[in-house]
Write a protein that binds this DNA or RNA. Structure first.
Lengths: 155, 155
DNA sequence: TCTACTAAGTTCAAAAAATCAACTCAGTAA
DNA sequence: TTACTGAGTTGATTTTTTGAACTTAGTAGA
């Protein structure tokens, strides 16, 4: 929980938040609708209470989940995802697909909700919605990200 | 390297292979063309030699990378990805995109290689190539995976 | 030839993180 | 009153990771 990658790379920085043991699985359990401490704990065979408590605290600090007090006095929380946590759906799906294609032991495949037909990942141009060909990561220039964020907020 | 998730979930099983500290970053360095031990080590500031050596060994056992001896006597290897390792590209891209949208510190965006326009992740139907709407994970029935694998091999 | 230096590790001690078991605290059920 | 549950906390033990030193074969330079 303290050792972080100090590398100028989105992947490393993302893993600093979601790369600790159990973390992504915890988020995934909340994603599929388990919101109580005990629900999450029971779903994740082998996790210990203290670790789950630590991770939930950290994820809330980082803004991936939020907790809603539904009983004070024994303080009880319901955990749900923020937009930032929900956005990990593509990461889950990428892992599910990779697992389906490359693991011996695999349990799920990914299908279109309407037709039930198997899908794979593709990339689409944000502006036009057209299908992209090859995609590549390129550096974000200094300040460009801040600008984009302002535009998104409609400022 | 020994503690594994024992859960019936593609994500957990995938993380059993690529979820250890440094592992995904190592694969990513090989993915972007660093093939020598020292190249990988230098790119990943903070990793120790023994850990890198352990991870490379494990990833080769698991079939995500292969090593080619280019000098015996001081035995020297060049590491490259197998098809299984290459297939992690979508996972890398999902993380890059999530990082771009949700981290304060972010270094890369993902663009179409031809037009340079920003892209996002979508899903398309394997059979027809059409864009899918909502996608959901569904269980793979007992034996179905084995069948699919046989079909893929053209048997 | 001798010395310095490099690549690709290995070995081992120390530090950090995760697991495990027991405990707390408030409330509920019998 | 006793037992039990949910949501944790505390502390000891075990496992992983880090960090530093060492090895081994080879290369470059003087």
């Amino acid at each position: 929980m303290k050792a972080r990658y100090n590398l100028p790379c989105n992947i490393a920085q993302s893993l600093n938040i979601i790369g600790d043991r159990w973390t992504l699985l915890i988020i995934h359990e909340i994603f599929v609708g388990r919101t109580l401490f005990s629900e999450i704990k029971n779903a994740l065979t082998g996790i210990s209470s203290n670790l789950l408590a630590d991770r939930l605290k950290y994820l809330e600090e980082e803004g991936l989940i939020k907790s809603e007090l539904y009983s004070r006095h024994p303080p009880r929380y319901r955990y749900t995802l923020t937009e930032s946590g929900e956005a990990l759906e593509h990461v889950f799906n990428a892992l599910i697909l990779w697992g389906h294609d490359h693991l011996k032991k695999c349990y799920k495949k990914l299908v279109d909700a309407e037709t039930g037909k198997e899908v794979e990942i593709g990339y689409y141009i944000k502006e036009t919605g057209e299908r992209a060909g090859k995609v590549v990561p390129v550096p974000v220039e200094e300040g460009e990200k801040a600008l984009e964020d302002r535009v998104k907020e409609g400022q």
